[in-house]
Design a protein around this nucleic acid. Sequence first.
DNA 1: GCTCTTAAACTAGCGGTGTAAGTTTTAATC
DNA 2: GATTAAAACTTACACCGCTAGTTTAAGAGC
Lengths: 217, 217
Amino acid sequence: MPRPRQALLNRERIVETALALIDADGLGAFSTRRLAAALNVQGPSLYNHFATKDEILDAVADSVTASVDVGVFDRYDWAEALRRWARSYRAALAVHPNIVPYLAQGPGRRPAALAMADAVYGALVRAGWPPARATHIGAALRYFVAGSALGSFARGFVEDPELYAAHPHLTQAHRLRGHQRSVDEGAFTLGLDALLHGLAAEYARTVTPLERGTGPG
Amino acid sequence: MPRPRQALLNRERIVETALALIDADGLGAFSTRRLAAALNVQGPSLYNHFATKDEILDAVADSVTASVDVGVFDRYDWAEALRRWARSYRAALAVHPNIVPYLAQGPGRRPAALAMADAVYGALVRAGWPPARATHIGAALRYFVAGSALGSFARGFVEDPELYAAHPHLTQAHRLRGHQRSVDEGAFTLGLDALLHGLAAEYARTVTPLERGTGPG
DNA sequence: GCTCTTAAACTAGCGGTGTAAGTTTTAATC
DNA sequence: GATTAAAACTTACACCGCTAGTTTAAGAGC
């Protein structure tokens, strides 16, 4: 087939289909040839729109990041904004867990990821946190969110009671998978509350009223 | 070459060499043929000792997990033990960051990972935490440690000042890579302190003195 | 309207991947 | 000493990311 009258591909369609494939079959099973087949096209045609496979994955990762609500930093004080951002971030990743290992490598050159980093860091500095501390806080929360989305804790345990026979405290571990949602959600809420509790204590201790900003916006 | 008088391979040598290769060149560049070449052997010979590539990676991941100190749960109260375990865990992963994405998928059937889960959970229950809560705490800390080791936060930012020109708060982001160690360490310490601070508060609030265990051991 | 350039599909092919199958020879066991 | 199992091998398959070169349609400039 030569160049068709109507272009068969565009970046948006490629990214959408790639995300659907990754969601369905995982990063390991994702290949340019399978992606092309899903788009009714031959493999190399994708390279008219993206230079490399990684560039496709970058676009997929950024489309996921773009669904995180960073507007919270304009509407809430730093602590409440952090809480809502973390929940929104995790929710976005939880819908597409298979792309998380790729996405968690860092913002790189992905625009939505950079915009998010800018919003988080800006809000913390505006609230009076010292710049180095703001960096640490953003990083610590990203660690926690990425870790929580990376692998479901509960799903990491095989559903095979015999496996745990040798471990006196894991006799019920095989049932974790069945309660995956509540285990993961409970652990995330616990950790987020604890983190924010600790941060609030440090804020009260180290950021003087004069340094505290003028609120959101 | 037929069967040699002295076996060229054994599981230990394979795992050691695989870890060295992964450390040096990353998971993406790791292949059975490259591993075999490093062992002066043809690719398929590995399959006399491991059934699949994943089985090799499992063994590599478990050898890293095995270097985490879980003895702390016998020597310290739950909070101090958690702190030391988290530091030991992160230190073990930080030496071999390239295997972390694989390892972070969960314990699966890897013995050292299961032993670690058993030790953490057992110590928390012994200290009086309700079983469900103990699961959440273990999971939350694993989220944090795995996230912190998965990708260096600082390394995720490209060293290209122009990239950040459009983001008002990221004008110094290109310098993060240069302070990678202190940024990552600072963020980890901040997060760990905050998490443990929050957990101690909940312990004081919800675990009655009667429920509290008899200490370590 | 003709020409030129670019775009978007194609086919063919390179060097690499995991791993299955079958072969050969040695070591270990009865 | 015969049998069996182990541990290397070679060959081969189907797939991978990607490059190169080809074909034709679409769009721009005169």
